[in-house]
Amino acid sequence: MANPVVKLISRIGAPFTDALLKLGFAARFFVAVLRHSPIALLRFSLTMREIWFAGVLSVLIIGVSGLFVGMVLALQGYDTLVRFGASSSLGILVALSLVRELGPVVGALLFASRAGSAITAEIGLMKATEQLSAMEMMAVNPIARVVAPRFWGGVISMPLLAAMFSAMGIIGGYLVGVQLLGLDSGSFWSQMQASVDLRFDVINGVIKSVFFGIAVSLIAVFEGYDAPPTAEGVSGATTRTVVTSALVILGLDVLLTAFMFRGV
């Protein structure tokens, strides 16, 4: 191995091998979480606490952000639509962009930074302070007791939070469009209702948020469980949760949108 060429090529290869190893470990971890899920779901009070932790505590940031995003959409959309004399279509613009894209995507990004990072830090610190090892010593499986409830708490919370984001955004759009800019309230709602389809737009948005919920929750619990048991390791894992979640959310969004909305 003393050959410098071999050394150079190995150094190029190493990150790919590491990434692949980690991906494989994450996949096996996912299977382990699913296998231990029935226990966590049967003792539902455990999952209940995590829904409170991941979901209830995120309501404020999700609701307020949704309201602001809806208001900005209405202000910006009105500026463009009014040039074409189509300002009564503002409701359609606000509702479609929120229900199809912004609700699930921005909701998931906020969820990853608010709840995902906290989950990673919690599990990482449990590992660093050897609480997980202590559980194993007492014949308690930490994946069933600690990881699975947090995973399901996130998966259950995410679609509800995304729906709240969209609903608050539409209310924000209504406040700006009708109350501030003086559009007609009747045409705002009726045009919106005529153009937004329940199955095609709303249900597809909910399906997106379910996928994002699974992805973010898995990344959060995995990074926490995989974190090096040091202060530095936990901080690095927390950062990785947010960065990886954001990339995975946006990448998944491209894929899901291509499947759902292409060519129709």
């Binding site: 509702a95 729906a163 389809d197």
Partner: peptide, 19 residues
């Protein structure tokens, strides 16, 4: 929280969209 989430979904289903 769950009630608020379901209420938001119902709002999207009945007030915002039509089937």
């Amino acid at each position: 929280f769950v009630m608020a989430g379901v209420a938001a979904l119902l709002f999207l289903a009945f007030k915002v969209s039509s089937s």
